[in-house]
Structures are given as structure tokens and as C-alpha cells.
Design a protein around this nucleic acid. Structure first.
Length: 687
DNA sequence: GTAGGGTTAG
């Protein structure tokens, strides 16, 4: 068919053929025809640029535009620049956007209303409000589209106050907002949780005949929901005559963000029953909604339904389900999702790869976490925070500090979360001086005022560093009321450094702040027993009993060949149970020969029978480690998780095991990761 | 042939 078309037609004719093929939806044939034109004119180029943009091939469209300029014979005209500006808006390429704006000025069409509007929209999509302001300033005539695009540019750039300012200015300039303006401005009210302005806009819409507009109403539903007025959101939703898929998605998210999970899921079911076509946003909304309401298992089940119904997970789905796996500690699921993300080229996505960095770190695989991070093409504050927190959890103090420096050098701005990560990294590696200097630099160099969390981290830094008296003074002098984390850090350090006096003070404050937390009683009990203050120790136990507080049962689990094996104290419910105890006996014997004595043997006199058993060498973490070693036989490092803090005797024993078996053992307790290699632990015996 | 808008993520 193509051969019948003369290839050397004059452009005026060929353009009609190109348009004909484009109307038939055949971009490939249209392109072949175009390539056959010896000297295409600007109009032909423009038609093709628009066609590529409509087809979502923006890069190709931008490439064609560059070719016009490189041809040396032609200059782009207003319509060509307009076409490429749209392509650029869709691709969000700021460098190109600036170049296109430059061309518009060069060819003297930047003050054209049509093109100016397109340029403002382009800058808005590229999140560059300064550019939009320049174009806006250069326009002598501004219409409702100019103002609307200008308002939404500020929304896209995260400047909701500026949006509302521009919206008011628009009213003053005598241009009447239409439905599109309202739906562009309302998101600013959502972000600011500004119910009054939102209501005003609602009233304006009703007065001006927009009461049933589906775009305005969806924006209103979201605005009322963000302002915690779910009743009004419901009302607007029910008063929308022609609901579309987005309307349903918005009301579902509205219920979830107001904690009404049941209603959200009911609406989702109703949407399906009514035959509304579900799109990926619908699925992502319910998945992330479940997740935000603590229903991680349901989120993963929804992923299954989504796939069964032929809807393909995208990078947003991947990000949410990775978070679900992280919460459920489903490391295998996380790896499967990583493989899926890799196959579908989602690993370059910022949020998805950040979620991967986090799940690998939390699963104990810091090396993989670092590898994913290093391959990220772009890293923002959240990404850097995640890797900083990752290295801090694993006790790599030096690495945490060097990551922080790299972040600052690369020009990414740290926020308050960054400092929580860096300071806790300092505490887990006893870097007191660095911790103090970073804490002081927060407000001085980074203009971030320390909050309660940072103060608590500093108490931890000083306490773990052995500077208990300083830590106590720091708590007393902090400008915010110290919380359980601050006193807990001090109490924990009193156990490490055997300081009874401060331990008593910290514990008594903790008994007031969180009287039901068994961990505090246990820590004080341990401190008193170590100091051989038996009477006071049993008083603490009595206090616990009287208040009806029970020590949480210790529990450890280990992953072996994609299966979880769980252990409690003295567990005998295991196929390898005999081998486990035999192995631990052997370890104990070897340890004694090497001169180790279990810490607990000294403190048994005052304990009852159950606690003796408890304190003997059958703690859940030891059993899990032994099981891991016997099952894995050195194939890979052993990874054990514990719900409570690791016990001192277990810590010693596992160090010994790591040396005598010659394998790496990783234990995550309730606070952090311990990497045991060759008789040493990464925590340097401070935990 | 004639522009601009509402929902989901680390």
C-alpha cells in the first residue's frame, strides 16, 4: 500500500496523507511517509510532533523538534514550539522546558496567549514555578486558562499558599473562575487543611452552576476529607449525578484517610458491583488504604485479586506492597516483589527503590540494601534518610556519618528525620563527640530546631557513651518534657554501666510515664540483681506482680530455606530439638574450657524455679541460632530475629559460636542488628 | 483543529 504513494510529493500534499494515517491511528506509516519527504516543512514536523505526544512518545516528539533546529534550514514556529511544549509537559523534562522557553523568546512568540498558556502549563508539570512566573509576567493578555494553569503550577510545586494568593488575585483582575479553576485550586485547600477557603469555593461553585460538575465535586470530596469533614465529603459524593472512576477512587481514599476502613471497603465492593471499571489507581488506593490502617495482610491479598482480574501492578503498587512485606517481615515476599519490579523496569523509581532499600536493611541484608541504594539514579531526602537509618540500625557509625556528609555534599537537604537517623547512628557506635557536634549544628547550620526525638537520641548518645551524669543533666535541662524514650535510654545504659542510683531515678520516672511496660521493670530488676541488691530486686518483682504486669515472653525466629522457624524459651517442639540441645551443650563445654562462665550463674540464688530455667542456657535466641547453624550448614549466614532485647549471656555465647563454627550470625533484637563475626559483635558489646 | 482540572507511593 505504501509503495503506491509517491514519496516525492510536495509537502502540502504529503501532510494530508500523514494526517490521514494519523487519523487511522497508524503512527508508524505516517512516520515512514514523513521520512520519504525530501524537504519537509515546519508544518509537517509539527503534525508529527503532536502525534508522538498524543501517543505518549514524548521523547521522540522532543527529538523531532531538536531535528528541526539542527536541520539548519528551518526555524521552529509558534505552533511547533506549542507542540513540543506539550510533549515536554508530559515528560517533565525541565532542561528541555527551559530550552523551549528560550526558543519562544528568540522567535518572538512568548507573549502569544496560546503559547504562553502552554508554557505555564509546561513549567507547572516540570515543577518550576520561577519559569511559570516569568512567562506569566511577559503575557499582556491573560485569560481564565492562563490563571488556572498558573494556580495549578503552584499546587504542583508544593506551594499551596501561593495558589490561594494567585486565585484571589485572579478574582481581583476581573477574570471569572470556571469549573476547571476550582478543581485546580481546591487541592491547595486540601494540603493546607483550610476548610474555610474550601467552603467559600464550594459556595462559589454552587452559585455559579457548578454543583454537579464531577471534577469540582471530586476535588471537594478530597478537600472535605482532608479537613476531617467526612460527612460533607459523603454529601458531595452523593450529590454528584454522573460519577466516574475517579469519583469512586476519591471517596474510597477519603474513608481510608479518616480511618473508616469498613466503609472504604464497602464502597470498593459497591463500585465493583455497579460495574465501574477499576483502574490501577483504584487498586492502589485500596491497597495503600489498607496498609495505612494496619491491614498489611489484606493489602497483599488485594495484590493477588488485582492480578487475577488482569490489572497490572505499577511502581506505586510495588511500593505499597513492599511496605506491607516490611511490616509483616515477609522477606521472601519482598524478594519476589523485587524480582517483579526488576522485570518491569520499576527499579529506577524513587519510591519503589527506597522501599527496597528499607526492606533489605530490615531483613538484615545491609549489603543488598546498599547495592539497591547505589544503583538509584536519583536520590532525594527520603532516600538518603532510609540508607542513613539502615546503616544506623546495623551499628555502622562511621558509615552513617560518611553517608550524612555525602548527602550534604550532593546538595540534598537533610530534614528532622535525617538527624534522628544520624544521632541514633552515633549512639549505636558510641560516637559522643560527633553526636554532640551534629546536634549543635542542627539549628546553627541546617536551620532545623531539635524536637523531642532528637533530644531523646542525644540522651542515648551520652548514656551509651558512658557519660551517664551528663545524660542525666541533659534530661533535666532539656526544654521539652522528656518522654519514655529519653528515660528508657538512660535506664538501658544504667544496665550496661551498672549504675544503680541513676537506674532507680530513670525507672521511677518510667513507671509513671508508662506503668504498663514490662521492659522497664525487667531492666531495673536486672540492674538490682547485678548489684546483688536482692531485697530491692524482689520488691520490683512484687510491684510488677501487684500491678498485674507480665513479662513479655521472649520469642525468636529464624529463616531457613524460605520458612520461618519459631522458638520460645526451652522450646522442645522441633524436629531437630535433640541436636539443638546437644550442640548447645557442646558449645557450653567448649566455652568453659576457654574460660567463659555464663553471667547468669551468679544471679540464680534468689530466683524461683521457672526463672532458673529461664536463665539457663535455653533462651529462644540460642535455640534459633543453633537451629539455623545445624540446618544451613554454612551455606549462608544465619539470620535470627528476636522480639525483646538480646540477653547478655546469649550475646557472649553467640559471639563464641560465630568464632568456633566460622559463620556469620546476624541477630536483630527489639532495638537493632548485631552482626557476629569471628568472636566479635558489631555492637561492640553495647546494646 | 482550539489550550487548563479531580484519585494512589517510599
Amino acid at each position: 500500500m505504501l509503495s503506491k504513494i509517491p514519496t516525492n510529493l510536495i509537502p502540502h500534499w504529503s501532510i494530508n496523507f500523514i494526517k490521514k494515517y494519523l487519523n487511522l491511528g497508524d503512527l508508524v506509516l505516517a512516520r515512514q511517509l514523513f521520512d520519504g519527504i525530501p524537504e519537509p516543512d515546519v508544518q509537517s514536523w509539527t503534525v508529527l510532533i503532536s502525534a508522538y505526544t498524543k501517543n505518549g512518545q514524548c521523547k521522540e516528539a522532543i527529538k523531532l523538534y531538536t531535528e528541526i533546529k539542527n536541520s539548519g534550514k528551518l526555524n521552529p514556529d509558534k505552533l511547533a514550539i506549542l507542540a513540543v511544549a506539550k510533549a515536554c509537559a508530559t515528560s517533565g523534562d525541565l532542561t528541555k522546558a527551559k530550552e523551549i522557553h528560550f526558543d519562544a523568546v528568540k522567535y518572538k512568540c512568548s507573549s502569544d496567549l496560546l503559547l504562553g498558556n502552554a508554557l505555564i502549563d509546561m513549567y507547572g508539570k516540570c515543577k518550576h514555578f520561577e519559569g511559570a512566573e516569568r512567562v506569566f509576567g511577559d503575557l499582556r493578555i491573560r485569560d481564565v486558562i492562563t490563571w488556572t494553569s498558573f494556580c495549578s503550577c503552584y499546587v504542583n510545586c508544593g506551594l499551596p499558599r501561593e495558589t490561594l494568593r494567585a486565585f484571589r488575585e485572579m478574582g481581583l483582575s476581573g477574570i471569572r473562575p470556571n469549573a476547571m479553576t476550582l478543581s485546580s485550586v481546591l487541592p491547595a485547600c486540601s494540603v493546607l487543611k483550610c476548610l474555610n477557603t474550601g467552603r467559600e469555593i464550594h459556595g462559589f461553585g454552587i452559585k455559579n452552576g457548578m454543583a454537579g460538575n464531577v471534577f469540582v465535586n471530586s476535588a471537594l470530596v478530597d478537600m472535605y476529607s482532608s479537613c476531617s469533614s467526612i460527612k460533607y465529603a459523603e454529601l458531595v459524593f452523593h450529590n454528584t449525578p454522573h460519577l466516574d472512576a475517579v469519583s469512586w477512587n476519591v471517596i474510597i481514599s477519603a474513608y481510608f484517610s479518616n480511618g473508616e476502613c469498613g466503609k472504604a471497603l464497602d464502597k470498593f465492593q459497591e463500585m465493583r458491583d455497579r460495574g465501574v471499571k477499576l483502574n490501577s489507581v483504584s487498586w492502589n488506593s485500596v491497597i495503600s488504604g489498607c496498609l495505612a490502617n494496619g491491614k498489611a495482610q489484606e493489602a497483599l491479598e488485594l495484590l493477588g485479586h488485582m492480578q487475577q482480574l488482569g490489572c497490572k501492578p505499577n511502581q506505586i503498587t510495588i511500593t505499597s506492597v513492599l511496605t506491607a512485606c516490611t511490616l509483616l517481615e515477609d522477606w521472601r515476599g519482598g524478594k519476589e516483589i523485587h524480582a517483579y519490579a526488576f522485570r518491569h523496569c520499576f527499579t529506577e523509581d524513587l519510591a519503589a527503590s527506597t522501599a527496597l532499600v528499607l526492606i533489605y536493611a530490615k531483613s538484615g541484608d545491609l549489603e543488598m540494601s546498599k547495592r539497591v541504594f547505589s544503583m538509584m539514579p536519583l536520590k532525594d531526602t527520603v532516600a538518603w534518610n532510609t540508607i542513613i537509618i539502615a546503616s544506623s540500625m546495623h551499628g555502622r557509625g562511621e558509615e552513617t556519618l560518611s553517608l550524612f556528609n555525602k548527602m550534604v555534599i550532593s546538595g540534598v537537604k537533610p530534614n528532622s528525620v535525617t538527624f534522628t537517623g544520624v544521632l541514633s547512628g552515633c549512639s549505636h557506635s558510641q560516637r559522643v563527640e560527633e553526636g554532640l557536634s551534629i546536634f549543635h549544628s542542627m539549628s546553627k547550620d541546617h536551620k532545623i530546631e531539635p524536637d523531642l526525638e532528637h533530644y531523646s537520641c542525644m540522651v542515648d548518645v551520652l548514656s551509651r557513651g558512658g557519660r551517664l551524669a551528663e545524660a542525666y543533666t541533659f534530661i533535666q535541662e532539656m526544654p521539652i518534657e522528656p518522654n519514655a524514650a529519653a528515660w528508657g535510654a538512660l535506664l538501658g545504659a544504667c544496665r550496661i554501666y551498672k549504675n544503680v542510683d541513676l537506674g532507680r531515678i530513670a525507672a521511677s520516672r518510667l513507671f509513671e510515664i508508662e506503668p504498663d511496660n514490662p521492659g522497664n521493670y525487667v531492666l531495673l530488676f536486672n540492674i538490682l540483681v547485678t548489684a546483688k541488691l536482692w531485697g530491692e530486686a524482689s520488691e520490683t518483682r512484687k510491684l510488677m506482680r501487684d500491678r498485674g504486669i507480665k513479662k513479655l515472653p521472649g520469642c525468636s525466629w529464624v529463616w531457613v530455606k524460605n520458612r520461618i522457624h519459631t522458638f520460645v524459651v526451652g522450646d522442645k517442639n522441633n524436629d531437630k530439638c535433640n541436636d539443638i540441645y546437644k550442640f548447645l551443650d557442646e558449645v557450653r563445654m567448649k566455652m568453659k574450657l576457654a574460660g567463659y562462665y555464663p553471667d547468669t550463674e551468679f544471679v540464680l540464688q534468689d530466683l524461683d524455679r521457672v526463672e532458673k530455667e529461664d536463665s539457663l542456657c535455653n533462651h529462644s535466641e540460642k535455640l534459633a541460632v543453633a537451629f539455623g547453624i545445624l540446618s544451613l550448614r554454612g551455606e549462608s549466614s544465619v539470620r535470627v530475629f528476636k522480639n525483646l532485647r538480646i540477653c547478655g549471656d546469649c550475646h557472649n555465647t553467640i559471639k563464641f559460636i560465630a568464632k568456633f563454627v566460622g559463620v556469620q550470625i546476624i541477630v536483630r533484637d527489639s532495638l537493632r542488628f548485631h552482626h557476629f563475626t569471628d568472636g566479635l559483635c558489631s555492637c561492640g558489646d553495647f546494646w
